[in-house]
């Protein structure tokens, strides 16, 4: 909840300043997220919750819809190319959706200071995860686990970079389902896009090729976030004046980022993002603890 001073300073500026600033910031987030290979959804909530006057309830609702809208735009292309795999996404998304509903309800019922503190810890952990975890390019799973075989979690796609057709299969399906339930729960609580966790879970745990992991992660987010988004919409925690400029900003930024991808040093941008996430996480943590309001 903002202090009296914050509320007074908020009232002192014209109403359109904040949505305009939100558009500008999400435009920038869209650019750097593409260059660094990190979903914009995970950056939005900590940064906007930390440095904008909007209550965390509305920021989380917007965060879910922002990540959802981004994946809707990319999903069709990824599905047609085989980079996103419906068979792989559907069981994992079902586990994630059920958990995200519970997460959304917990998020809306929990006191704001506890949520801020937990958000701060989560965002710092995510920043460290992005920093430390290196994706695997290997596609060497030889045999599916029994559940994976039953679900026929296999596929192939044309990969010009690899010089042809890539056949793949996954394993560790039961553990994968549990991991996606945990990710879905956290996504529902905090309104975060979950690409930061989905991709390592698919790639490192289940053994999907990186491109299939990235593509299928987007599809999973579009399904999982739909469930939690309805809880926020039905609770009145979705304000169009926050959601719409954010969606438009990140979509436009993503297109610009895709054009700048070849010429911008991705490693530098990635380090910048990790530093920003650590700052935003520390801000949320200190705000939750009542140290920096």
């Amino acid at each position: 909840m903002p202090s009296a001073d914050t509320a007074a300073s908020t009232l002192a500026v014209a109403w359109w300043i904040w949505p305009a600033a939100l558009f500008a910031v999400t435009l920038l987030l869209g650019i750097v997220a593409v260059i660094a290979g990190i979903g914009g959804g995970v950056l939005f909530v900590p940064i906007v919750a930390g440095f904008f006057p909007f209550h965390l309830d509305f920021v989380r609702g917007a965060g879910l819809l922002l990540a959802l809208a981004g994946t809707l735009a990319a999903g069709p292309v990824l599905l047609r190319s085989g980079m996103a795999n419906l068979r792989l996404a559907m069981p994992l998304a079902l586990a994630g959706s059920a958990a995200s509903l519970a997460g959304a309800m917990v998020g809306l019922a929990a006191p704001a200071n506890i949520l801020q503190t937990a958000l701060g810890i989560t965002v710092i952990a995510v920043a460290l995860l992005i920093w430390r975890v290196k994706p695997s390019q290997a596609t060497g799973i030889e045999e599916s686990d029994p559940l994976g075989a039953m679900l026929r979690l296999v596929g192939r796609f044309d990969d010009p970079a690899a010089g042809g057709r890539v056949d793949w299969r996954t394993n560790h399906t039961p553990v994968g389902l549990m991991v996606f339930a945990v990710i879905g729960f956290l996504g529902g609580v905090f309104g975060l896009g979950a690409g930061f966790a989905n991709v390592p879970a698919l790639n490192l745990l289940m053994g999907a090729p990186l491109k299939v992991a990235v593509g299928s992660s987007g599809l999973i987010i579009s399904i999982v976030n739909s469930s939690a988004a309805w809880v926020y919409i039905n609770s009145g925690a979705v304000l169009p004046i926050i959601v719409v400029p954010s969606i438009l900003g990140i979509m436009l930024g993503s297109r610009i980022g895709a054009r700048l991808l070849r010429t911008t040093p991705a490693a530098t941008v990635r380090r910048l993002i990790i530093a920003t996430m650590l700052l935003a996480g520390a801000r949320a943590l200190l705000r939750g603890l009542g140290i920096w309001n």
């Binding site: 909840m1 109403w15 909007f54 209550h55 509305f58 809306l108 609770s235 304000l239 926050i242």
Partner: peptide, 14 residues
């Protein structure tokens, strides 16, 4: 014009 006084409130109070 009234939104800046309201968007900082928890959803229940809003």
């Amino acid at each position: 014009a009234e939104l800046p006084a309201l968007w900082g409130l928890p959803v229940g109070r809003y």
